[in-house]
């Protein structure tokens, strides 16, 4: 529903050489399809939450049979949803940031803007990798001790699938940051060549 300025496929795999930034473009190796698919899963999950809570509300009031475990499932789900969709949210340029300085640079010093964006994306990559490596051990532990929400004899759900989804989400987001940085650098190099040709 948003009028995206450049959809995947609108430009080559490296992105338009003179696009203002790397967002909303096709990614190398067609990886935007992977991120898009994960995003779609997250989307269905949101719809599932709506159905689940309504089932609980109507079941409780009309049939006196609440759905047990909705509270636990909702609080786990939100984490799963966020990390399934994190990479696509990044790819489509939806991470919030201030654009005052960047907009000016894009107009006046496009190569500096490219370089700065590359740096920011690399920082994002590093941060994701740090969280990623620290998230591995909790996942293993969660499987080992069969961590669950709920209670024995009542509703019980395992926690590890959410930890796994989180890990996958962090990994794909790290990948996305890396690809964005690479596209920034390529764009900067292309601008440099053009400047060289003109001179």
């Amino acid at each position: 529903m948003t009028a995206s300025r450049n959809e995947p496929g609108a430009s080559g795999p490296t992105g338009g050489a003179f696009a203002p930034d790397a967002y909303n473009q096709a990614l190398p190796f067609g990886l935007h399809h992977l991120f898009g698919a994960m995003n779609a899963l997250g989307t269905l999950w949101i719809l599932g939450l709506m159905v689940l809570i309504n089932l609980d509300v109507f079941g409780r009031n009309l049939l006196s049979t609440p759905v047990r475990g909705v509270t636990e499932m909702v609080s786990l789900s939100i984490v799963g949803i966020v990390f399934l969709q994190l990479a696509d949210t990044l790819r489509t340029g939806r991470f919030t940031r201030a654009d005052v300085l960047m907009d000016r640079l894009k107009r006046q010093q496009p190569r500096v803007a490219d370089a700065l964006q590359a740096v920011f994306h690399l920082v994002g990559l590093v941060l994701m990798l740090i969280i990623l490596q620290a998230s591995w051990e909790p996942l293993v532990e969660s499987i080992r001790i069969r961590e669950y929400v709920g209670a024995v004899g009542d509703f019980q759900a395992p926690v590890w699938p959410i930890r796994l989804v989180t890990l996958l989400g962090l990994a794909t987001t790290a990948l996305c940051f890396g690809l964005l940085a690479w596209m920034d650098l390529k764009r900067m190099a292309a601008r440099g060549r053009l400047a060289g040709d003109a001179a």
Binding site: R60, P66, R68, G69, V70, T71, A151, G153, D154
Partner: peptide, 17 residues
Amino acid sequence: PGPAANWIRGTGAVGVA
């Protein structure tokens, strides 16, 4: 909530989280 749900089940009441 949680384990206390087991203290209710069997009394005819419906447990709510």
